[in-house]
Design a protein around this nucleic acid. Structure first.
Lengths: 351, 351
DNA sequence: ATCGAAATCCAAAGCGCTTTGGAAACTGGC
DNA sequence: GCCAGTTTCCAAAGCGCTTTGGATTTCGAT
């Protein structure tokens, strides 16, 4: 193990070359002979030379860091979805030699933070998480000229931006239709926080599907909040206390869906035969069987399914592409959720 | 908005001071007059001066970045616990002007990564996640002289290190005793991966408690694996298929505990009256009610409880302290888990 | 008044990399 | 052989900060 890290100067001296040439050889510039390059690379390897990131960053203005600013105030809880998203994204970053700079901050501070990150050149790009409808972060980022990709959409007027989203409206439209086709008329919606754009779209899909089938919206069947297990539990208890309870529940995530199942269980009802439960499933890793060789069970929940980890990969890829070429045309991508039939949906029981 | 970011040189010129003085004024050195300092600070504020992190990093060798290297290979899944831990840690970092550098990498690459991070001076310290018994990362980090704190313990021989852990052995010892006191004799253990040190300790606590009460260990009642919901589900199904099923199940996390509950529900059994379920609860945010004003429900699971988010805070604090003064004596901290009685434990039903 | 100490401030040398603007050394074609 | 055109390489100027080693000023005490 070298006692003192070897730097470019030392390396170039050992080679009898200038720093310029060595630097260029290592960074793949065309104006250095292949033979020289090979020599340089070999020596670098042998001496365990590693360029200093901060020096490189100072000279180039690039940090090879991708900013992820997420909120975790008590209200908008840190969602477990984030871990899987970042798992996907991080894999892509690692392949390309980038690291994640993670900063935790409440939403109201994020605009300022983006401004600082941009001015400091601390990151080469950022991913916007959990966009609201009319999210102000997007305008700021466009003004700053900092490359970014939005996970989700914001419906921001006028400003264009790169995004990747799942078709939440369509997914919930289809899910609602599916339940109606099974014979359900009273369908509850346990939604995410509707200040979030994705939750708003989901409600729209649900609402239009009902309207198309001539079913009137019933506010008492609609819930909105952070997608936790207790949310599902509580909503279900309230629903079952209604004079005319629903026969089906549409849930925004598998997490609250588990709360739904727990509440039903306590009441002696079985998901499926007694109450249909249909959830949006982000394929969260801790809810999946790990052993992929094992015979795959029939999925428990009937669900609209879209891997958030894959979304993380895709968003990261898009962002790195933008960083490589900031003036490329803005991309956007809309994924359709898979519809998988599980054990928790059935025609309404008549009692 | 300034068109071009103002740097130290410009700032010092506007003030008619040298860069040295300005730098010292801003960094709180004693050899600058209070009056001058005030002037400098005011001007810095007014001109929106922000020191360049990479330049500062190059000059000082400090990056103000804390490394978190986590694995997410398919085998060791990215655990949802991580999100909450990082939520706590990130809060502390943010207060002190640090950011998280997050790198995803399989365990077998982590030693090399620490080496690189240290040589590159890319981070000022690291947190070690998920220590194994005899974890090699600890020796490497000690050799590198990179400040670090271990979340958990490793039982590494000889090498000393700073750590923070919950008393897993005691917690599972107490839990087992509690169940025995209720009259249970056949108690299953659905444990985490026992290559992880924490899971090993938990098994020890369980085993010694049983031994003390003269109950023979039964391998068919013991499971070990990634702590997912399906793990609990599958284990429970296997347990119920036994000729002589257990009357109580000790579970390593609330996540598999939910799988346990689901399996029981399907079989028409109710957690508590029909089968006792006792879980270790990390207070995962997505399983907690968010609205803390609401009357708090009686906790569902009887559990040993210790907030992983608080652990994140504490570990971060310890690490920052070490970075401030690397030669301070090594600290370690052992937390006792709270024991909370919920609705899922009862004396064994006799049937 | 005068002197040493304390308080202020500064010029300049790094930190380790990239990159500009040439210079020197090869080519091949005549 | 000689010259224009490539190749191949280099010296030196940044990038923006911290910090060393003084220089200058201020000030209380003699």
């Amino acid at each position: 193990m070298a006692h003192k890290a070897v730097n470019l100067k030392m390396l170039s001296e050992t080679l009898g070359l200038s720093q310029t040439t060595v630097s260029r050889a290592l960074n793949g510039f065309p104006e250095v002979a292949e033979k020289t390059r090979a020599r340089v690379v070999e020596a670098a390897e042998r001496l365990n030379y590693r360029p200093s990131p901060s020096a490189a960053s100072l000279a180039t203005g690039k940090s090879r860091l991708i900013g992820h600013v997420v909120s975790l105030s008590t209200h908008i809880m840190i969602n477990p979805h984030f871990a899987d998203f970042i798992a996907g994204a991080g894999e892509v970053y690692a392949e390309s030699g980038y690291d994640i700079l993670l900063r935790l901050a409440p939403l109201e501070e994020q605009e300022r933070i983006y401004l600082n990150l941009a001015q400091d050149q601390r990151v080469d790009g950022v991913v916007v998480h959990g966009p609201l409808t009319g999210d102000r972060r997007i305008g700021i980022l466009n003004a700053l000229g900092l490359p970014f990709v939005v996970h989700g959409r914001s419906d921001e007027e006028g400003s264009d931006y790169a995004w990747m989203d799942v078709n939440n409206r369509r997914a919930f439209h289809r899910a609602t239709e599916f339940l109606v086709d099974l014979g359900h008329r009273r369908i509850a919606l346990v939604n995410g926080l509707e200040t979030m754009n994705f939750a708003e779209r989901r409600r729209q899909g649900y609402a239009t599907a009902l309207a198309e089938r001539g079913i009137r919206l019933d506010e008492t069947l609609m819930f909105s909040g952070d997608m936790t297990e207790p949310q599902g539990y509580r909503a279900t208890r309230e629903l079952m206390a209604l004079q005319e309870p629903p026969t089906a529940i549409l849930v925004a995530s598998v997490l609250p869906a588990m709360g739904v199942a727990r509440a039903l269980g306590e009441a002696g009802l079985r998901p499926g035969p007694d109450m249909s439960v249909l959830a949006f499933d982000d394929c969260l890793s801790f809810l999946e069987p790990i052993d992929t060789d094992a015979p795959r069970d029939i999925p428990y929940f009937t669900a609209m399914r879209s891997s958030i980890r894959d979304a993380g990969k895709r968003v990261a890829r898009m962002l790195l592409d933008r960083i490589d070429d900031p003036r490329r045309p803005l991309e956007s991508e809309l994924w359709e959720a898979d519809f998988v039939i599980g054990q928790t949906t059935a025609p309404p029981s008549r009692r």
